[in-house]
Design a protein around this nucleic acid. Sequence first.
DNA 1: CAGAGGATGTGCT
DNA 2: GCACATCCTCTGG
Length: 200
Amino acid sequence: MKLPYSYYQNQDVVFLAKDLLGKVLFTEIEGNITAGIIVETEAYFGVMDKASHAYGGRRTDRTEILYNDGGLSYVYLCYGIHHLFNIVSSVKDEHHAVLVRAVEPLIGTEIMELRRNMPVSKAAISSGPGSAAKALGIDRSFNTKDLTGEEIWIEDHNIRYTPDEITARPRIGVAYAQEDAFLPWRFFVKGNKYVSKPNK
DNA sequence: CAGAGGATGTGCT
DNA sequence: GCACATCCTCTGG
């Protein structure tokens, strides 16, 4: 049920970003389990991708995590406010990651409502990378955690989407990446209300 | 050691 | 639709 270490060693991060749609992301914090179905992701293609934090082999304290083998979480703070959760899928000299941009609340929804201070009926509860992380209780203390461990993990609940149920679009907020900003490496489930805007 | 800026969300207009 | 919150990280001096 829990995705194994080997799953995260897949070198095709674009495939992985698509394959993660429908997988279920869990966290357990002080005995509270929450989980959501991943409905929106973005692929970041290692050293070749100007939008990636590992572009050009860039290596700093923050990005050091990307230079480990896959199967770790990469959480960093954006705009001083939002925690963004990534799945590291690096192997050898390929330092890839997948950003989880939205989840559909599945388990522990009342806990998510407390964390987000809004009813689960509102799509904004877990729509967008900052909100999805907050709903699941993910903050920077989750950085570098093992995704096959006891605090954060991903399960396959046999939810499958057909190719025509998935939309590919350019990634959000990466205008600085020049020509790479146009790559259609944002994937989301068509019509799912928890997908962040723009969702068409 | 200071300063700028960022893979965004919210609330007000 | 737009302003602004808020702070870590990287860069340059």
